[in-house]
Design a protein around this nucleic acid. Structure first.
Length: 193
DNA sequence: CGTACGATCTGCT
DNA sequence: GCAGATCGTACGA
């Protein structure tokens, strides 16, 4: 399990890249499901126009982002999709990393059931709404420890060459002006097929 | 209290 | 490629 101090790093962009290749696991409804993280996006606090915490915005929803690093931030998007983020940095600084895609490595049968799918395909768990659906994460899993029983991360020492990690602008944040162009999205194509 | 809109996905064309 | 689904959140009146 990634130790609690891992999430206290103040460089959220570094962490977003570092998380590529780590394993995200959940044990929800007594079902163990895991996947290798293949796509992330960094949301860099109060100065980042694309972040919910831009300008220091502090509301019932965004309060989770101000927690000490190492907890989940789950919220509803477009009224339909639950999006899972990892809160980082010390308490009071609202950094978060959105998990956009995983490659299933455990509990595939349960993942397929949750995704209403027959078999593992390229896009089964690609897209932030699909990740939460596959892992059984819902709004009740907001602000829970990532060193707990239900959700945690693991370093399985999976090797991904630096050249195999791509960078690009974040998705769906056109409203953020210049910040929408920042290369805060990281992904690897190693698990495409 | 009213209302506009979003860190998306799917199905149909 | 595009529209529709669908509802909590944020913010202004």
């Amino acid at each position: 399990m990634l130790k609690a101090s891992y999430y206290l790093n103040s460089d959220v962009v570094f962490l977003a890249r570092d998380l590529i290749g780590k394993t995200l696991c959940t044990n929800i409804n007594n079902k163990l499901t895991c996947g290798i993280i293949t796509e992330t996006e960094a949301y860099a606090g109060v100065d980042d126009k694309a972040s919910h915490a831009y300008g220091g915005r502090r509301t019932a929803r965004t309060e989770t982002m101000y927690s000490k690093g190492g907890v989940s931030y789950v919220y509803l998007c477009y009224g339909i999709h639950k999006l899972f983020n990892i809160v980082t940095n010390k308490e009071g600084i609202p950094h978060a990393i959105l998990i956009r895609a995983i490659y299933p490595t455990a509990g595939l049968e349960e993942i397929l059931k949750r995704r209403h799918a027959e078999k593992l395909t390229k896009n089964l768990c690609v897209g932030p709404g699909k990740v939460t659906e596959a892992l059984g994460i819902n709004l009740l899993h907001n602000n829970v420890s990532l060193n707990g029983e239900e959700i945690w991360l693991r370093d399985d020492n999976i090797k991904i060459n630096k050249n195999d990690i791509q960078t690009g602008p974040r998705i769906g944040v056109d409203y953020a002006g210049f910040d929408a162009t920042l290369p805060y999205r990281f992904y690897t194509t190693n698990y495409n097929f």
